[in-house]
């Protein structure tokens, strides 16, 4: 089909112009800010003063930022393993032909459509509550006193665990559906011939499902990485120093915080944003290298 330059412009120009304003310009400016001393978030670039990498040095020497990056890694690895393994397990169960599997899929996915703030408060105000909470009353009924009196929200270790559990609950359904979609694309012939050869369920999972899901698993890890870096709402709700994540740290650098004395430093916040972006990019590239699979997407 023939088309004039004018037609192309009409179709594409709005998207390109908006993209330039909201993606290209801000990325360039944020990187610029990270190498400058910037008075405040609304300061013109003419008032910036070049400081080289001192924002980055300052950042690495800041205890709260280091805590937040360690928390990122802890969530990425431990909560990641919990979420993705559970998602894979649920996907295997819900493709094995059990009765009502469509219904179970829908129920387990449901928390994904609820806002992080609402999910966070459900768990904070109800599930983990020490007086009338779901876990407290459940374990009390079962007669398991130690578990019933477990202080989920106590500062000094458990609040981070509590936050991670809430996060697993809210995100597992999405990865489960991803894996279900991958499993359903695997030809039934493989499983049938394996059954004829006398393979059991576990062997079939290890030798057929897992290798053929490699691409999907790679995609899910990449997606998980960028989402964990964007993790914010739950960290703000389970509010304590131990639950600080990079997004929350940057937010506090830019807009202050009610519970901690944080200095407002825009250049440093920009440096943190660059470090976060580079971290996600490097992890994604490594995963792509490790999982060589032609079905790998994104």
């Amino acid at each position: 089909m023939k088309q004039s330059k004018g037609t192309i412009a009409v179709f594409l120009a709005p998207a390109i112009i908006l993209f330039a304003i909201v993606f290209i310009y801000p990325v360039v400016r944020t990187v610029g800010m990270s190498f400058n001393e910037v008075g405040n978030i609304t300061a013109d670039s003419s008032t910036w003063s070049w400081t080289g990498i001192s924002n980055y040095v300052d950042l690495m020497n800041t205890r709260l930022f280091r805590i937040s990056m360690v928390n990122f890694l802890k969530i990425w690895i431990f909560t990641g393993i919990a979420t993705l393994v559970l998602a894979l397990l649920l996907a295997t169960i819900l493709t094995s032909g059990i009765i009502g599997q469509k219904f179970f899929r829908a129920v387990i996915y449901m928390p994904n459509v609820i806002s992080g703030v609402a999910v966070g408060y459900m768990w904070l105000l109800y599930v983990f509550n020490a007086d009338y909470g779901l876990l407290h009353s459940l374990f009390l009924k079962l007669g398991w006193e130690t578990a019933a009196n477990f202080q989920w929200l106590s500062v000094g270790g458990n609040v981070f665990l509590a936050m991670c559990i809430a996060y697993v609950f809210s995100s597992v359904g999405y990865y489960m559906l991803m894996y279900i979609s991958g499993i359903e694309k695997i030809s039934k012939d493989y499983y049938e011939s394996a059954t004829l050869d006398g393979a059991n369920g576990f062997q079939k999972f290890m030798n057929i499902t897992l290798p053929l899901l490699k691409g999907v698993i790679g995609t899910s890890i990449t997606l998980w990485t960028s989402r964990v870096m964007g993790f914010f709402a739950l960290s703000q709700i389970f509010n304590s120093t131990e639950t600080t994540v990079p997004m929350k740290y940057v937010y506090q650098l830019l807009f202050g915080s009610s519970d901690e004395v944080t200095e407002l430093k825009v250049g440093k916040a920009a440096a943190a944003a660059v470090v976060m972006t580079v971290t996600v990019t490097i992890i994604s590239m490594v995963i792509k290298r490790v999982i060589k699979d032609e079905n790998y997407e994104i």
């Binding site: 594409l12 990325v27 944020t30 609304t42 940057v250 830019l254």
Partner: peptide, 26 residues
């Protein structure tokens, strides 16, 4: 342009908010 959009998908919001805040305030 297609490649640019793919890169855009993976740019985290945190890289964008500071300049946008500046622009909106202007």
């Amino acid at each position: 342009i297609e490649r640019l959009f793919v890169v855009g998908i993976s740019i985290p919001g945190i890289m964008i908010i500071m300049p946008m805040f500046y622009m909106f305030s202007k």
